[in-house]
Structure formats: C-alpha cells, structure tokens
Simulated assay, not measured.
Amino acid sequence: MTTAIDGPRLAPASGAAKSLVVFLHGYGADGNDLIAIGREWRKLLPDAAFVAPHAPERCMASPSGRQWFPLTFRDPDERRRGVIAATPGLNAFLDAELARTGLGPDRLALVGFSQGTMMALHAGLRRPTPPAAILGYSGMLVQPEALKTEATGKPPILLVHGDRDEVIPVDALFAAMDGLAAAEIPVEWHLAPGLGHGIDGEGLRQGAAFLASALKPRRTSLRGASQA
C-alpha cells in the first residue's frame, strides 16, 4: 500500500532554517529510525532543519516498517526499476519541504542508509538543482552507467561503509566509487573496520563534519563594492 510521504521533523536549534537535512531510511525501517541522528547533529548544524520521511510503501518483510521500493533479492533489475519508480514521489516531498522551510534547492542535503542511500544517490544526482551534499551509509549506487547522461551536477558526496557488512557487502562501496569516477563525480569515502550493516560513532562524526562543511553559509562577494 502506498501513502503520502511524511515523517518526524526537528526544527533548527538556532530557530532559523538555513539548510534542510533529509534522512532516507533503509528497507523495513521508517523515519523514526534516523531522526535521532538529527538530535546528535544539531550542535554542529544549528541552522539545519531535519526531517526523516517514512517511505511510501509498507514493507512485506517487516509489516511495521516501510520501503522505498520492494525487494525480492531474486530479480537483478528490481533496484533499477525501484529507484526510478520511487524518485518522483521523493522529489515531490523534497520540493514541498523546501517550500515549507523557505529554502532554495541548493540548501538541501540528503542522508541515506542502505536502501535510503540508493535513493539519495539516484534522486540527488538527477535533481534539476543539485543538492548541497549527499551522505550515504551502507548503500550502493544503482544504474551507474546512466550517470554520464543523466547526472545534473557534481555535489559533494561522502560514502561510509562497514568492512563486515553482511547485507550490502563492502564491494558495493568500491563499485559506487568506480561508477561515480567514470562519470567524473568526485566522492569521499570512509571504510569502518569491524562494522556490519550499521552506522558507528566515527561514521556519525565524519558525516556531521562533512555536512557542516558542505552547508556553510556562502560569503557575500565584496568585489566591485565602492570604497571610501
């Protein structure tokens, strides 16, 4: 069953939103799974509003959870079809949330975990205005061969993966790096030793620092200004 996308939100600690950080959860979870990260990051990102939407479909493998698209793990093409089908609904939510917070599309950061990383990379790299940053944990890049013709920009990207991931093997990290490099899209990466399918403290620390750098307010140019 598909429903409208919505989920928990956190207002900026400073009271005035200058950026929007959107968490995209993994298969079988929901927005509540990641919104707690926003509480940890508010000190370093005081001007960021956070939202963690619930994916639009119920997950048959986890009836209390949600999915961005169904996975049978039997069809090699299901991820490609899935991200393509789910992207319009996600983009509609992102556009509405940017309008709600009064922010431009370049002030958006996408943070994904697992299936959410697939969505962050696929949708983020194809938005009319590229996001300020894409941060992906324990995920993979779907349809890398299409990036050369479909990518609309080269936003900063950080990918984090555990070297003991039993759900999405670490080879997916290296494949994503190769796919992005083939499209001439720079990417930073961090390999977490001993980590399975999850996010550890170091990954959170690096992710927060990455977003803080990418979302720094732009300085107004003084070039051409008159001087006394």
Rank of each mutant, 00 (worst) to 15 (best):
L204K: 13
M119G: 13
A52I: 03
H197V: 10
Q67W: 11
P193E: 11
G116W: 03
G162R: 07
A123E: 11
R39V: 02
G196I: 07
G104W: 12
P144Y: 01
D163S: 06
F50A: 02
H122Q: 04
P105V: 00
A13Y: 00
A151S: 15
A61D: 14
L135W: 11
F73Y: 11
A17G: 07
A36Q: 12
L45V: 06
L34M: 14
P131A: 03
D75L: 08
R66S: 13
L211S: 07
L158V: 09
A29G: 07
A133F: 05
I5K: 02
T72E: 14
D77M: 01
L180D: 07
E78H: 01
P169C: 00
A4W: 00
E40V: 13
T101E: 14
M177V: 13
R80A: 15
M140A: 15
D75T: 03
G15V: 12
K148R: 15
T72A: 13
L20P: 12
P144F: 03
R42V: 13
L204I: 08
T149R: 15
P63G: 04
I157S: 06
V187A: 15
G201N: 11
V167M: 15
K216W: 00
Q143D: 15
R66F: 10
P53L: 07
M1I: 09
F23P: 06
P88A: 13
A212L: 01
T3F: 09
G116E: 09
M118K: 03
P12A: 08
P130M: 05
E184M: 01
L125E: 06
G201P: 00
A99P: 00
P76M: 01
L147E: 00
I37T: 09
D163W: 12
G136D: 13
G38N: 10
R107S: 11
P76F: 04
S19Q: 13
A212P: 00
H161I: 02
L215S: 02
L34T: 01
A151M: 10
G7L: 08
D200H: 02
L135I: 06
L98D: 01
A175C: 02
L110T: 07
V83Y: 08
A132P: 07
G26C: 10
D95Q: 14
H190N: 01
L94V: 07
F73S: 03
R80C: 01
I185Y: 01
I5S: 08
R100F: 02
L158N: 08
I157D: 04
L121W: 10
I134G: 10
T152K: 15
A96F: 03
W41N: 03
G7N: 09
D163Y: 09
T2V: 14
R218I: 05
A29T: 02
Q67E: 15
A13I: 00
L180W: 12
L222I: 09
K216Q: 12
P88W: 13
G194M: 03
V142S: 05
I185A: 03
M1D: 08
H161N: 04
D95H: 06
R100L: 05
T72M: 07
G203I: 05
A109W: 04
G153K: 05
M119D: 11
P105F: 03
P131V: 02
R107W: 00
E57K: 05
A55K: 06
L110S: 10
R205S: 11
A16N: 04
S138L: 05
H54G: 00
